[in-house]
Design a protein around this nucleic acid. Structure first.
Lengths: 246, 246
DNA sequence: CAACCCCGATATATCCGATAAATGAACCAG
DNA sequence: CTGGTTCATTTATCGGATATATCGGGGTTG
Protein backbone atom coordinates (compact mmCIF):
# COMPACT_ATOMS: atom_id res chain seq x y z
CA UNK A 1 0.00 0.00 0.00
CA UNK A 2 3.02 2.29 0.21
CA UNK A 3 2.91 3.16 -3.47
CA UNK A 4 -0.80 3.23 -3.97
CA UNK A 5 -1.20 6.95 -4.11
CA UNK A 6 2.11 8.01 -5.50
CA UNK A 7 2.18 5.96 -8.70
CA UNK A 8 -0.56 7.89 -10.41
CA UNK A 9 -4.25 7.28 -9.89
CA UNK A 10 -3.82 3.58 -10.37
CA UNK A 11 -1.27 0.99 -11.29
CA UNK A 12 -3.60 -1.90 -11.76
CA UNK A 13 -1.58 -3.73 -14.38
CA UNK A 14 1.36 -4.39 -12.11
CA UNK A 15 -0.96 -5.53 -9.36
CA UNK A 16 -2.13 -9.11 -9.25
CA UNK A 17 -4.22 -10.08 -12.20
CA UNK A 18 -3.50 -10.51 -15.86
CA UNK A 19 -5.50 -7.49 -16.97
CA UNK A 20 -6.99 -4.24 -15.77
CA UNK A 21 -10.23 -5.82 -14.58
CA UNK A 22 -8.45 -8.34 -12.36
CA UNK A 23 -6.11 -5.67 -11.12
CA UNK A 24 -9.03 -3.54 -10.11
CA UNK A 25 -10.80 -6.54 -8.57
CA UNK A 26 -7.80 -7.15 -6.36
CA UNK A 27 -7.33 -3.50 -5.43
CA UNK A 28 -10.99 -2.98 -4.58
CA UNK A 29 -11.28 -6.30 -2.76
CA UNK A 30 -8.35 -5.41 -0.53
CA UNK A 31 -9.69 -1.93 0.09
CA UNK A 32 -13.09 -3.26 1.09
CA UNK A 33 -11.91 -5.95 3.51
CA UNK A 34 -9.47 -3.54 5.13
CA UNK A 35 -12.42 -1.35 5.92
CA UNK A 36 -11.48 1.66 3.82
CA UNK A 37 -15.11 2.29 3.01
CA UNK A 38 -16.44 2.03 6.53
CA UNK A 39 -16.03 5.73 7.10
CA UNK A 40 -16.56 7.01 3.58
CA UNK A 41 -19.26 5.97 1.10
CA UNK A 42 -18.31 3.66 -1.74
CA UNK A 43 -17.63 5.73 -4.89
CA UNK A 44 -19.96 5.74 -7.83
CA UNK A 45 -19.08 3.84 -10.94
CA UNK A 46 -17.94 7.07 -12.67
CA UNK A 47 -15.79 8.12 -9.72
CA UNK A 48 -14.16 4.71 -9.46
CA UNK A 49 -13.26 4.77 -13.14
CA UNK A 50 -11.71 8.19 -12.86
CA UNK A 51 -9.82 7.41 -9.64
CA UNK A 52 -8.23 4.30 -11.12
CA UNK A 53 -7.80 5.69 -14.60
CA UNK A 54 -9.75 2.96 -16.35
CA UNK A 55 -12.89 2.83 -18.44
CA UNK A 56 -16.35 2.31 -17.05
CA UNK A 57 -16.44 -1.15 -18.66
CA UNK A 58 -13.50 -2.32 -16.58
CA UNK A 59 -14.98 -0.74 -13.50
CA UNK A 60 -18.37 -2.32 -14.00
CA UNK A 61 -16.91 -5.76 -14.58
CA UNK A 62 -14.76 -5.56 -11.47
CA UNK A 63 -17.76 -4.42 -9.45
CA UNK A 64 -19.84 -7.26 -10.87
CA UNK A 65 -17.22 -9.80 -9.79
CA UNK A 66 -17.11 -8.33 -6.30
CA UNK A 67 -20.89 -8.51 -6.27
CA UNK A 68 -20.68 -12.19 -7.21
CA UNK A 69 -18.38 -12.72 -4.23
CA UNK A 70 -20.83 -10.99 -1.93
CA UNK A 71 -18.77 -7.89 -1.14
CA UNK A 72 -20.85 -5.33 -3.01
CA UNK A 73 -24.39 -4.57 -4.02
CA UNK A 74 -25.43 -2.10 -6.70
CA UNK A 75 -28.77 -0.43 -7.26
CA UNK A 76 -29.81 2.51 -9.43
CA UNK A 77 -29.90 5.86 -7.73
CA UNK A 78 -28.71 4.34 -4.44
CA UNK A 79 -25.30 3.57 -5.86
CA UNK A 80 -22.89 0.77 -5.05
CA UNK A 81 -22.59 -0.14 -1.40
CA UNK A 82 -20.36 -2.46 0.60
CA UNK A 83 -22.29 -5.41 1.98
CA UNK A 84 -21.96 -6.38 5.66
CA UNK A 85 -19.14 -8.82 6.28
CA UNK A 86 -21.66 -11.53 7.14
CA UNK A 87 -22.63 -11.81 3.50
CA UNK A 88 -19.08 -12.03 2.14
CA UNK A 89 -18.29 -15.41 0.68
CA UNK A 90 -15.50 -16.51 3.01
CA UNK A 91 -15.08 -19.69 0.97
CA UNK A 92 -13.93 -17.73 -2.02
CA UNK A 93 -10.16 -17.96 -2.15
CA UNK A 94 -9.81 -14.33 -3.19
CA UNK A 95 -11.89 -13.11 -0.28
CA UNK A 96 -10.09 -15.37 2.18
CA UNK A 97 -6.71 -14.23 0.89
CA UNK A 98 -7.66 -10.56 1.21
CA UNK A 99 -8.86 -11.18 4.74
CA UNK A 100 -5.77 -13.11 5.81
CA UNK A 101 -3.33 -10.73 4.17
CA UNK A 102 -4.65 -7.71 5.95
CA UNK A 103 -3.08 -6.61 9.22
CA UNK A 104 -2.04 -10.16 10.26
CA UNK A 105 -5.40 -11.24 11.54
CA UNK A 106 -4.69 -13.98 14.03
CA UNK A 107 -8.28 -14.11 15.17
CA UNK A 108 -9.48 -15.05 11.68
CA UNK A 109 -6.81 -17.70 11.42
CA UNK A 110 -7.98 -19.20 14.69
CA UNK A 111 -11.56 -19.26 13.48
CA UNK A 112 -10.55 -20.93 10.24
CA UNK A 113 -8.56 -23.51 12.15
CA UNK A 114 -11.67 -24.15 14.23
CA UNK A 115 -13.37 -25.00 10.97
CA UNK A 116 -10.51 -27.27 9.96
CA UNK A 117 -11.09 -29.18 13.20
CA UNK A 118 -14.53 -30.07 11.89
CA UNK A 119 -13.56 -30.71 8.28
CA UNK A 120 -10.25 -32.50 8.10
CA UNK A 121 -10.79 -35.26 10.70
CA UNK A 122 -14.02 -36.19 8.94
CA UNK A 123 -12.26 -36.05 5.59
CA UNK A 124 -9.62 -38.41 6.94
CA UNK A 125 -12.34 -40.77 8.15
CA UNK A 126 -13.98 -40.75 4.73
CA UNK A 127 -10.59 -41.31 3.10
CA UNK A 128 -10.10 -44.36 5.31
CA UNK A 129 -13.47 -45.70 4.22
CA UNK A 130 -13.60 -44.90 0.54
CA UNK A 131 -10.09 -43.82 -0.48
CA UNK A 132 -8.67 -45.57 -3.52
CA UNK A 133 -5.18 -46.96 -3.88
CA UNK A 134 -4.24 -43.91 -5.91
CA UNK A 135 -5.55 -41.62 -3.17
CA UNK A 136 -3.41 -43.42 -0.63
CA UNK A 137 -0.43 -43.11 -2.93
CA UNK A 138 -0.93 -39.35 -3.10
CA UNK A 139 -1.15 -39.11 0.68
CA UNK A 140 1.99 -41.16 1.07
CA UNK A 141 3.72 -38.97 -1.50
CA UNK A 142 2.85 -35.90 0.56
CA UNK A 143 4.22 -37.59 3.66
CA UNK A 144 7.38 -38.54 1.79
CA UNK A 145 7.85 -34.92 0.82
CA UNK A 146 7.56 -33.90 4.46
CA UNK A 147 10.23 -36.41 5.38
CA UNK A 148 12.40 -35.12 2.56
CA UNK A 149 11.83 -31.57 3.78
CA UNK A 150 13.17 -32.58 7.19
CA UNK A 151 16.42 -33.44 5.47
CA UNK A 152 16.33 -30.17 3.56
CA UNK A 153 15.42 -31.84 0.27
CA UNK A 154 12.02 -30.20 -0.13
CA UNK A 155 10.01 -27.22 1.03
CA UNK A 156 8.38 -27.79 4.40
CA UNK A 157 5.31 -25.70 3.70
CA UNK A 158 4.62 -27.12 0.24
CA UNK A 159 4.97 -30.65 1.57
CA UNK A 160 2.62 -29.96 4.46
CA UNK A 161 0.06 -28.50 2.08
CA UNK A 162 0.40 -31.42 -0.33
CA UNK A 163 -0.36 -33.85 2.47
CA UNK A 164 -3.49 -32.11 3.70
CA UNK A 165 -4.77 -31.53 0.19
CA UNK A 166 -4.27 -35.21 -0.63
CA UNK A 167 -6.39 -36.23 2.35
CA UNK A 168 -9.15 -33.81 1.41
CA UNK A 169 -9.25 -35.15 -2.13
CA UNK A 170 -9.16 -38.74 -0.91
CA UNK A 171 -12.46 -38.16 0.87
CA UNK A 172 -14.10 -38.58 -2.53
CA UNK A 173 -16.48 -35.79 -1.62
CA UNK A 174 -16.29 -32.64 -3.75
CA UNK A 175 -17.38 -30.46 -0.83
CA UNK A 176 -14.41 -31.58 1.24
CA UNK A 177 -12.11 -31.33 -1.76
CA UNK A 178 -13.25 -27.74 -2.15
CA UNK A 179 -11.33 -26.78 0.97
CA UNK A 180 -8.13 -27.55 -0.90
CA UNK A 181 -7.38 -23.99 -1.99
CA UNK A 182 -8.57 -22.52 1.27
CA UNK A 183 -6.39 -24.74 3.42
CA UNK A 184 -3.46 -23.98 1.15
CA UNK A 185 -4.06 -20.26 1.44
CA UNK A 186 -4.51 -20.41 5.18
CA UNK A 187 -1.40 -22.55 5.68
CA UNK A 188 0.73 -20.19 3.64
CA UNK A 189 -0.45 -17.34 5.83
CA UNK A 190 -0.29 -19.19 9.11
CA UNK A 191 3.28 -20.27 8.55
CA UNK A 192 4.29 -16.70 9.21
CA UNK A 193 3.08 -17.15 12.78
CA UNK A 194 3.74 -20.75 13.53
CA UNK A 195 7.26 -20.78 12.16
CA UNK A 196 8.17 -17.87 14.36
CA UNK A 197 7.20 -19.67 17.52
CA UNK A 198 9.28 -22.78 17.47
CA UNK A 199 11.39 -24.88 15.17
CA UNK A 200 8.15 -26.55 14.27
CA UNK A 201 9.02 -29.23 11.75
CA UNK A 202 5.29 -29.95 11.65
CA UNK A 203 5.68 -33.30 13.38
CA UNK A 204 6.08 -35.82 10.63
CA UNK A 205 5.28 -38.61 13.04
CA UNK A 206 1.79 -37.24 13.67
CA UNK A 207 1.15 -36.98 9.98
CA UNK A 208 2.39 -40.52 9.48
CA UNK A 209 -0.15 -41.69 12.04
CA UNK A 210 -2.92 -40.25 9.90
CA UNK A 211 -1.58 -41.92 6.80
CA UNK A 212 -1.23 -45.27 8.57
CA UNK A 213 -4.79 -45.12 9.90
CA UNK A 214 -6.12 -44.39 6.41
CA UNK A 215 -4.01 -47.19 4.96
CA UNK A 216 -5.41 -49.53 7.62
CA UNK A 217 -8.95 -48.48 6.65
CA UNK A 218 -9.59 -47.39 10.21
CA UNK A 219 -11.91 -44.35 10.05
CA UNK A 220 -12.08 -43.77 13.80
CA UNK A 221 -8.34 -43.79 14.23
CA UNK A 222 -7.84 -41.58 11.17
CA UNK A 223 -10.33 -39.10 12.58
CA UNK A 224 -8.70 -38.82 15.98
CA UNK A 225 -5.20 -38.68 14.52
CA UNK A 226 -6.12 -35.82 12.23
CA UNK A 227 -8.00 -34.08 15.02
CA UNK A 228 -4.97 -34.02 17.28
CA UNK A 229 -2.93 -32.73 14.37
CA UNK A 230 -5.17 -29.73 13.80
CA UNK A 231 -5.53 -29.30 17.54
CA UNK A 232 -1.80 -28.69 17.72
CA UNK A 233 -2.15 -26.00 15.08
CA UNK A 234 -4.80 -24.23 17.12
CA UNK A 235 -2.60 -24.32 20.22
CA UNK A 236 0.25 -22.94 18.17
CA UNK A 237 -1.89 -20.09 16.92
CA UNK A 238 -3.07 -19.33 20.43
CA UNK A 239 0.55 -19.27 21.57
CA UNK A 240 1.45 -16.96 18.68
CA UNK A 241 -1.46 -14.73 19.54
CA UNK A 242 -0.26 -14.48 23.12
CA UNK A 243 3.25 -13.51 22.10
CA UNK A 244 1.89 -11.08 19.54
CA UNK A 245 -0.23 -9.34 22.11
CA UNK A 246 2.64 -9.14 24.57
CA UNK B 1 -38.77 -3.38 -28.64
CA UNK B 2 -39.13 -5.97 -25.98
CA UNK B 3 -42.29 -7.36 -27.47
CA UNK B 4 -41.12 -9.02 -30.66
CA UNK B 5 -37.56 -10.24 -30.41
CA UNK B 6 -36.87 -10.89 -26.75
CA UNK B 7 -39.47 -13.55 -26.14
CA UNK B 8 -38.07 -16.08 -28.59
CA UNK B 9 -34.29 -16.41 -28.14
CA UNK B 10 -34.19 -15.86 -24.42
CA UNK B 11 -36.51 -14.22 -21.99
CA UNK B 12 -33.96 -13.23 -19.42
CA UNK B 13 -36.06 -10.59 -17.75
CA UNK B 14 -38.77 -12.93 -16.57
CA UNK B 15 -36.17 -15.39 -15.33
CA UNK B 16 -34.68 -15.03 -11.89
CA UNK B 17 -32.76 -11.82 -11.44
CA UNK B 18 -33.78 -8.24 -11.30
CA UNK B 19 -32.18 -7.29 -14.60
CA UNK B 20 -30.82 -8.70 -17.84
CA UNK B 21 -27.37 -9.42 -16.45
CA UNK B 22 -28.71 -11.48 -13.55
CA UNK B 23 -31.14 -13.22 -15.85
CA UNK B 24 -28.30 -14.23 -18.12
CA UNK B 25 -26.17 -15.24 -15.14
CA UNK B 26 -28.89 -17.61 -14.02
CA UNK B 27 -29.55 -19.01 -17.49
CA UNK B 28 -25.88 -19.61 -18.26
CA UNK B 29 -25.15 -21.00 -14.80
CA UNK B 30 -27.92 -23.55 -15.16
CA UNK B 31 -26.82 -24.46 -18.68
CA UNK B 32 -23.25 -25.02 -17.55
CA UNK B 33 -23.98 -27.20 -14.53
CA UNK B 34 -26.45 -29.29 -16.50
CA UNK B 35 -23.62 -30.09 -18.86
CA UNK B 36 -25.00 -28.43 -21.95
CA UNK B 37 -21.52 -27.41 -23.01
CA UNK B 38 -19.86 -30.75 -22.49
CA UNK B 39 -20.51 -31.79 -26.07
CA UNK B 40 -20.40 -28.40 -27.74
CA UNK B 41 -17.87 -25.62 -27.22
CA UNK B 42 -18.89 -22.61 -25.17
CA UNK B 43 -20.00 -19.78 -27.48
CA UNK B 44 -17.96 -16.68 -28.01
CA UNK B 45 -18.97 -13.45 -26.42
CA UNK B 46 -20.50 -12.21 -29.69
CA UNK B 47 -22.47 -15.42 -30.23
CA UNK B 48 -23.79 -15.41 -26.67
CA UNK B 49 -25.01 -11.85 -27.06
CA UNK B 50 -26.81 -12.66 -30.27
CA UNK B 51 -28.34 -15.89 -28.96
CA UNK B 52 -29.82 -14.20 -25.91
CA UNK B 53 -30.67 -10.96 -27.64
CA UNK B 54 -28.67 -8.74 -25.31
CA UNK B 55 -25.74 -6.41 -25.67
CA UNK B 56 -22.13 -7.48 -25.30
CA UNK B 57 -21.90 -5.47 -22.08
CA UNK B 58 -24.56 -7.59 -20.41
CA UNK B 59 -22.93 -10.72 -21.78
CA UNK B 60 -19.48 -9.77 -20.56
CA UNK B 61 -20.71 -8.91 -17.08
CA UNK B 62 -22.58 -12.19 -16.75
CA UNK B 63 -19.51 -14.07 -17.94
CA UNK B 64 -17.34 -12.17 -15.47
CA UNK B 65 -19.63 -13.16 -12.61
CA UNK B 66 -19.55 -16.79 -13.66
CA UNK B 67 -15.77 -16.49 -13.83
CA UNK B 68 -15.76 -15.14 -10.28
CA UNK B 69 -17.72 -18.23 -9.21
CA UNK B 70 -15.21 -20.52 -10.91
CA UNK B 71 -17.43 -21.81 -13.70
CA UNK B 72 -15.76 -20.09 -16.62
CA UNK B 73 -12.40 -18.88 -17.79
CA UNK B 74 -11.81 -16.42 -20.63
CA UNK B 75 -8.71 -15.76 -22.66
CA UNK B 76 -8.16 -13.83 -25.89
CA UNK B 77 -8.22 -15.87 -29.06
CA UNK B 78 -8.92 -19.07 -27.10
CA UNK B 79 -12.38 -17.90 -26.16
CA UNK B 80 -14.43 -18.59 -23.07
CA UNK B 81 -14.30 -22.14 -21.74
CA UNK B 82 -16.15 -24.03 -19.01
CA UNK B 83 -13.87 -24.90 -16.11
CA UNK B 84 -13.77 -28.45 -14.74
CA UNK B 85 -16.33 -29.02 -11.99
CA UNK B 86 -13.53 -29.36 -9.45
CA UNK B 87 -12.86 -25.64 -9.66
CA UNK B 88 -16.48 -24.55 -9.29
CA UNK B 89 -17.15 -22.76 -6.01
CA UNK B 90 -19.61 -25.19 -4.42
CA UNK B 91 -19.96 -22.84 -1.47
CA UNK B 92 -21.54 -20.19 -3.63
CA UNK B 93 -25.28 -20.35 -3.09
CA UNK B 94 -26.00 -19.77 -6.77
CA UNK B 95 -23.76 -22.62 -7.84
CA UNK B 96 -25.15 -24.93 -5.19
CA UNK B 97 -28.71 -24.08 -6.15
CA UNK B 98 -28.04 -24.74 -9.83
CA UNK B 99 -26.44 -28.06 -8.95
CA UNK B 100 -29.24 -29.18 -6.66
CA UNK B 101 -32.00 -28.12 -9.04
CA UNK B 102 -30.69 -30.20 -11.89
CA UNK B 103 -31.85 -33.72 -12.43
CA UNK B 104 -29.52 -36.20 -10.79
CA UNK B 105 -28.97 -34.40 -7.55
CA UNK B 106 -29.55 -37.08 -4.94
CA UNK B 107 -25.89 -38.03 -4.94
CA UNK B 108 -24.90 -34.39 -4.46
CA UNK B 109 -27.41 -34.05 -1.67
CA UNK B 110 -25.89 -37.03 0.09
CA UNK B 111 -22.42 -35.54 -0.27
CA UNK B 112 -23.58 -32.23 1.11
CA UNK B 113 -25.19 -33.98 4.04
CA UNK B 114 -21.89 -35.72 4.63
CA UNK B 115 -20.41 -32.26 4.98
CA UNK B 116 -23.16 -31.23 7.36
CA UNK B 117 -22.17 -34.19 9.56
CA UNK B 118 -18.82 -32.53 9.99
CA UNK B 119 -20.04 -28.96 10.34
CA UNK B 120 -23.19 -28.83 12.35
CA UNK B 121 -22.26 -31.03 15.31
CA UNK B 122 -19.12 -28.96 15.79
CA UNK B 123 -21.17 -25.78 15.44
CA UNK B 124 -23.51 -27.07 18.13
CA UNK B 125 -20.54 -27.80 20.39
CA UNK B 126 -19.21 -24.27 19.86
CA UNK B 127 -22.66 -22.87 20.51
CA UNK B 128 -22.77 -24.75 23.81
CA UNK B 129 -19.40 -23.26 24.78
CA UNK B 130 -19.66 -19.69 23.58
CA UNK B 131 -23.29 -19.06 22.70
CA UNK B 132 -24.85 -15.97 24.21
CA UNK B 133 -28.25 -15.74 25.82
CA UNK B 134 -29.57 -14.13 22.66
CA UNK B 135 -28.20 -17.01 20.56
CA UNK B 136 -30.00 -19.49 22.78
CA UNK B 137 -33.16 -17.46 22.46
CA UNK B 138 -32.95 -17.69 18.68
CA UNK B 139 -32.43 -21.43 18.81
CA UNK B 140 -35.39 -21.84 21.13
CA UNK B 141 -37.46 -19.68 18.83
CA UNK B 142 -36.64 -21.98 15.93
CA UNK B 143 -37.63 -24.97 18.04
CA UNK B 144 -40.87 -23.26 19.04
CA UNK B 145 -41.67 -22.73 15.38
CA UNK B 146 -41.14 -26.44 14.73
CA UNK B 147 -43.55 -27.28 17.51
CA UNK B 148 -46.03 -24.79 16.12
CA UNK B 149 -45.61 -26.35 12.68
CA UNK B 150 -46.57 -29.72 14.13
CA UNK B 151 -49.87 -28.16 15.05
CA UNK B 152 -50.17 -26.61 11.61
CA UNK B 153 -49.45 -23.12 12.84
CA UNK B 154 -46.21 -22.61 10.91
CA UNK B 155 -44.31 -23.94 7.91
CA UNK B 156 -42.37 -27.10 8.73
CA UNK B 157 -39.51 -26.40 6.35
CA UNK B 158 -39.04 -22.76 7.34
CA UNK B 159 -39.04 -23.72 11.00
CA UNK B 160 -36.48 -26.48 10.45
CA UNK B 161 -34.23 -24.07 8.55
CA UNK B 162 -34.58 -21.40 11.22
CA UNK B 163 -33.42 -23.85 13.87
CA UNK B 164 -30.33 -25.02 12.03
CA UNK B 165 -29.39 -21.49 10.99
CA UNK B 166 -29.70 -20.32 14.58
CA UNK B 167 -27.28 -23.00 15.75
CA UNK B 168 -24.77 -22.12 13.03
CA UNK B 169 -24.89 -18.46 13.98
CA UNK B 170 -24.61 -19.28 17.67
CA UNK B 171 -21.22 -20.86 17.02
CA UNK B 172 -19.84 -17.34 16.96
CA UNK B 173 -17.58 -18.37 14.10
CA UNK B 174 -18.17 -16.60 10.77
CA UNK B 175 -17.01 -19.65 8.82
CA UNK B 176 -19.69 -21.81 10.39
CA UNK B 177 -22.25 -19.05 10.02
CA UNK B 178 -21.42 -18.96 6.34
CA UNK B 179 -23.14 -22.31 5.87
CA UNK B 180 -26.41 -20.61 6.69
CA UNK B 181 -27.50 -19.97 3.11
CA UNK B 182 -26.16 -23.30 1.88
CA UNK B 183 -28.00 -25.33 4.49
CA UNK B 184 -31.15 -23.40 3.73
CA UNK B 185 -30.79 -24.05 0.02
CA UNK B 186 -30.03 -27.72 0.52
CA UNK B 187 -32.92 -28.21 2.92
CA UNK B 188 -35.36 -26.61 0.54
CA UNK B 189 -34.22 -29.00 -2.16
CA UNK B 190 -33.95 -32.08 0.01
CA UNK B 191 -37.49 -31.71 1.24
CA UNK B 192 -38.61 -32.89 -2.16
CA UNK B 193 -37.08 -36.27 -1.42
CA UNK B 194 -37.39 -36.67 2.31
CA UNK B 195 -41.00 -35.58 2.51
CA UNK B 196 -41.95 -38.16 -0.05
CA UNK B 197 -40.61 -41.04 1.99
CA UNK B 198 -42.46 -40.79 5.22
CA UNK B 199 -44.62 -38.43 7.17
CA UNK B 200 -41.42 -37.08 8.58
CA UNK B 201 -42.33 -34.32 10.96
CA UNK B 202 -38.59 -33.82 11.38
CA UNK B 203 -38.56 -35.18 14.89
CA UNK B 204 -39.03 -32.21 17.14
CA UNK B 205 -37.81 -34.25 20.10
CA UNK B 206 -34.38 -34.75 18.55
CA UNK B 207 -34.09 -31.05 17.85
CA UNK B 208 -35.11 -30.28 21.40
CA UNK B 209 -32.28 -32.50 22.65
CA UNK B 210 -29.81 -30.31 20.79
CA UNK B 211 -31.28 -27.15 22.22
CA UNK B 212 -31.26 -28.56 25.73
CA UNK B 213 -27.62 -29.62 25.45
CA UNK B 214 -26.63 -26.15 24.26
CA UNK B 215 -28.67 -24.56 27.04
CA UNK B 216 -26.89 -26.83 29.53
CA UNK B 217 -23.51 -25.70 28.15
CA UNK B 218 -22.65 -29.31 27.39
CA UNK B 219 -20.57 -29.32 24.16
CA UNK B 220 -20.13 -33.08 23.96
CA UNK B 221 -23.82 -33.79 24.33
CA UNK B 222 -24.72 -31.05 21.86
CA UNK B 223 -22.30 -32.52 19.36
CA UNK B 224 -23.66 -36.04 19.56
CA UNK B 225 -27.26 -34.88 19.55
CA UNK B 226 -26.74 -32.88 16.39
CA UNK B 227 -24.76 -35.67 14.82
CA UNK B 228 -27.59 -38.16 15.22
CA UNK B 229 -29.96 -35.57 13.81
CA UNK B 230 -27.98 -35.19 10.60
CA UNK B 231 -27.34 -38.90 10.54
CA UNK B 232 -31.09 -39.43 10.24
CA UNK B 233 -31.14 -37.09 7.27
CA UNK B 234 -28.46 -39.13 5.53
CA UNK B 235 -30.38 -42.34 6.12
CA UNK B 236 -33.47 -40.71 4.75
CA UNK B 237 -31.64 -39.60 1.64
CA UNK B 238 -30.23 -43.08 1.15
CA UNK B 239 -33.71 -44.50 1.47
CA UNK B 240 -35.03 -41.97 -1.01
CA UNK B 241 -32.21 -42.81 -3.38
CA UNK B 242 -33.04 -46.48 -3.17
CA UNK B 243 -36.71 -45.94 -3.90
CA UNK B 244 -35.82 -43.57 -6.72
CA UNK B 245 -33.62 -46.14 -8.38
CA UNK B 246 -36.18 -48.89 -7.88
C1' DC C 1 -52.39 19.96 8.28
C1' DA C 2 -51.68 15.61 6.26
C1' DA C 3 -51.78 12.35 2.57
C1' DC C 4 -50.91 11.68 -2.11
C1' DC C 5 -49.09 12.30 -6.68
C1' DC C 6 -45.96 14.04 -9.95
C1' DC C 7 -41.52 15.48 -11.40
C1' DG C 8 -36.69 16.02 -11.48
C1' DA C 9 -32.15 14.56 -10.14
C1' DT C 10 -28.97 10.80 -9.83
C1' DA C 11 -26.97 6.40 -10.29
C1' DT C 12 -26.92 2.05 -12.40
C1' DA C 13 -28.38 -0.62 -16.62
C1' DT C 14 -28.11 -1.24 -21.42
C1' DC C 15 -26.77 -0.57 -26.03
C1' DC C 16 -23.39 0.45 -29.48
C1' DG C 17 -19.24 0.92 -32.38
C1' DA C 18 -14.39 1.41 -32.54
C1' DT C 19 -9.70 0.24 -31.28
C1' DA C 20 -6.07 -2.36 -28.58
C1' DA C 21 -3.88 -6.44 -27.09
C1' DA C 22 -3.11 -11.27 -26.75
C1' DT C 23 -2.51 -15.64 -28.85
C1' DG C 24 -2.57 -19.69 -31.60
C1' DA C 25 -2.14 -21.15 -36.35
C1' DA C 26 -0.85 -20.76 -40.86
C1' DC C 27 2.83 -19.33 -43.67
C1' DC C 28 7.18 -18.22 -45.45
C1' DA C 29 12.25 -17.99 -45.49
C1' DG C 30 16.66 -20.15 -44.76
C1' DC D 1 12.87 -29.34 -41.58
C1' DT D 2 13.44 -25.47 -38.50
C1' DG D 3 12.47 -20.99 -36.90
C1' DG D 4 10.62 -16.70 -37.08
C1' DT D 5 6.77 -13.77 -39.04
C1' DT D 6 2.37 -12.60 -40.44
C1' DC D 7 -2.42 -13.03 -39.85
C1' DA D 8 -6.85 -14.02 -38.15
C1' DT D 9 -9.75 -14.54 -34.15
C1' DT D 10 -11.27 -13.48 -29.65
C1' DT D 11 -11.24 -11.09 -25.54
C1' DA D 12 -9.94 -6.48 -23.44
C1' DT D 13 -10.62 -1.68 -23.26
C1' DC D 14 -12.44 2.68 -24.40
C1' DG D 15 -16.12 6.25 -24.34
C1' DG D 16 -20.50 8.22 -25.58
C1' DA D 17 -25.55 7.81 -25.88
C1' DT D 18 -29.85 6.27 -24.08
C1' DA D 19 -32.97 3.65 -20.93
C1' DT D 20 -34.53 2.56 -16.44
C1' DA D 21 -35.05 2.53 -11.59
C1' DT D 22 -35.55 5.09 -7.41
C1' DC D 23 -35.31 8.58 -3.92
C1' DG D 24 -36.59 13.04 -2.43
C1' DG D 25 -38.80 17.37 -2.98
C1' DG D 26 -42.63 20.10 -3.89
C1' DG D 27 -47.03 20.98 -5.15
C1' DT D 28 -51.80 19.67 -4.96
C1' DT D 29 -55.78 18.17 -2.73
C1' DG D 30 -58.96 16.30 0.76
Amino acid sequence: MSTSLSTAPGDLRSGLGRNLTYGMLDALGRAIVTGQYETQPFPTEAELAKQHGVSRSVTREAVKMLTAKGLLSARPRQGTVVQPASSWNLFDTDVLRWLLERQFSVELLRQFSQLRIAIEPEAAALAAQFGTAEDLRQISAGLARMEAAERGMDDTLDADIAFHVAVLRASGNPFYAQFRDMVATALRTSIRFTNRIKGRTASVADHAAVRDAIAAKDPAKARTAMRSLIGDVVELIDAADGSEAA
